[in-house]
Design a protein around this nucleic acid. Structure first.
Lengths: 341, 341
DNA sequence: ATGAAAGCGCTAACAT
DNA sequence: ATGTTAGCGCTTTCAT
């Protein structure tokens, strides 16, 4: 027999309305009555029926806000497709989405979007813009008003978000090192390309990679760590120089940065196939590089999964009262080769 | 405004009961009335509300039957965990599961289980035992009684199942070849280990692998294809012989078979690290082999995902009337290295 | 502070 | 052949 509100009401000798008030933390119930009901709830191991909840919410569906960079950014399209497939599963379960696309070059828009959504009465927020003091304050503002926030893809550390859903950056660096180990031999020289070492996220991959190499003794030499600031020109220029200086360079780890620049630099020096290249993500330049056999491996962070999991997590939190198992939910780290495509 | 049965009934000038009869293909409606209602349904683009459906089904939950090998088989535990996580999401949506564990050495039990489930009135069946004439007949028997069957992990070809959910075996062979290409150099000799070439599934991986090697020109030589019949002794013995005969063997592709036997044979000949080894799945022996750096890569078929997708597909079919997009649903092919663990 | 009752969209049993 | 109605479990509004 499944336990219902009706059953609890009967046992407590009150009406279903009162039980509902208690279960949803609404005022208007005498403390001792509330206590008694909670007792019975625990004893009977009551679990709310989500279908019934959903039906009752039909009139006034629960809204989840989503704050992310503009639609035209390739990488986020994959995330959105994951979000939408979760939304699809949940569409009859009484939820609606409110997307807010904000400029990701500064924190202002993102911070404002969170506040607007809270004012508008959303029941939860998914957020992915940047890590900033202003943003952190907005997240905490939401949290204080009981609006749970899940950050995805890039975290806002030390904020009151209930969870971060994204890649394990350190591990992706480790895996990259493992791949280098497999394809390079005795005493190889490698170079690391990153965006900006001031960013924690960019540093993590580099650190993971170094740690991974170290596990294989001292046979690897990291010639240089290039900061390309995610720009083509800077990245190309520096790699161009390095390739010129080191005829014996064995591998390139594109931790973060413009992959096209890397591919072009290798082509310019006619070193296709002589260098082992490991990069991240499966954007068109990486895919193209794989197909041309210039890139050996690319490590992906499952953007669809990130979107899917984040929304599902909010739903479970709001409707079933589930806490995330940990404050970090890492999506699996997967390796792609040309044949995987 | 969402379209409801009530709305359709009003427009058609009939009662909700009649609309319900039409929508669920129940008898007792005059053909022209039925046609008229269907017309309106299409015009208004009616989509049933699953939460409401689920609630209404509470009294008499829909049951899905699951036929698979015994609980103690490691590989199927992962699949089951995927099934259960889907069931968890669907638990309030009016479904129950009926597991039938059958001996997978012969077709009889599996075939009988299907029939029993059909007689018991289940609304759908997930099946994973073996490909056999007896089984095929049972699946068709179910299909004829409008009980949809999804085969998972291993298919029953040419049967009336609505879909097969599992790995793309050919692709996993291709990927294995791609990995060999990356880690072996000029003119390498490799050996393929499979279970039984009479089985279509076992053949597929081997064919994919050969096709993949061929893509890299003629630099690979396949010394032998060993049939180990999934047994330790046979596999060990043959690999032992081969390793003795060919000091220059470059790689082993364990397409199907006992991985512990492979690891042990390599250890006996003290060829750890000198041979590149690619295998499948992430059972304990493979994991152990990876950690010991005897196995270089293992290619996985996402057993959890197979379970999850299969159940979800049945649900969508039965409750939302969705047809599978294709009669094969391949789970992604992923590559693992020690660092992935 | 608490109870009673209507309604969310659908199904199924019972009436007509 | 078709209409009516009573739930399914929960929320919410209106009485008391």
């Amino acid at each position: 027999m499944t336990v219902t509100i009706r059953e609890i009401a009967k046992q407590a000798g009150v009406s279903r309305g009162t039980v509902d008030r208690v279960l949803n933390d609404r005022p208007g119930v005498k403390p001792h009555v509330r206590a008694r009901i909670l007792e019975i709830v625990n004893e009977l191991n009551y679990v709310p029926n989500l279908a019934a909840k959903a039906l009752a919410y039909q009139k006034k569906p629960v809204v989840f806000g989503i704050v992310m960079p503009p639609e035209d950014i390739e990488f986020f399209e994959s995330i959105r497709s994951g979000i939408n497939s979760a939304a699809d599963e949940l569409k009859d379960l009484g939820i609606r989405l409110d997307y807010r696309y904000v400029d990701n070059r500064g924190p202002e828009e993102g911070a404002a979007a969170i506040r607007e959504l809270v004012e508008a009465g959303v029941s939860g927020i998914m957020f992915s813009v940047m890590d900033d003091e202003l943003i952190r304050a907005s997240i905490d503002y939401a949290a204080e008003r009981n609006v749970p926030v899940v950050t995805f893809n890039s975290d806002v550390e030390h904020s009151k978000r209930i969870c971060f859903v994204g890649q394990d950056l350190h591990k992706s660096g480790l895996v990259a090192a493992g791949l280098m180990n497999r394809v390079l031999h005795e005493r190889a020289k490698v170079v690391i390309v990153t965006g900006n070492l001031k960013f924690h996220a960019h540093r993590s991959r580099v650190e993971g990679f170094r740690k991974g190499l170290a596990d294989y003794g001292s046979r690897f030499e990291v010639l240089d760590v290039i900061e390309g600031y995610d720009r083509y020109a800077e990245t190309f220029e520096q790699l161009d120089r390095l390739l010129g200086e080191h005829a014996d360079l064995g591998g390139i780890y594109m931790a973060t940065g413009d992959i096209a620049a890397c591919v072009d630099a290798i082509k310019k020096h006619r070193r296709e196939g002589q260098l082992r290249v490991v990069c991240n993500d499966l954007m068109p330049p990486a895919e193209q590089g794989l197909r041309e056999r210039i890139i050996d491996f690319t490590i992906v962070q499952n953007p669809e999964r990130q979107g899917y999991v984040s929304l599902r997590m909010l739903y479970d939190h709001v409707f079933a009262g589930k806490q995330p198992e940990s404050e970090h939910h890492f999506t699996e780290t997967h390796i792609y080769i040309p044949e995987s495509l």
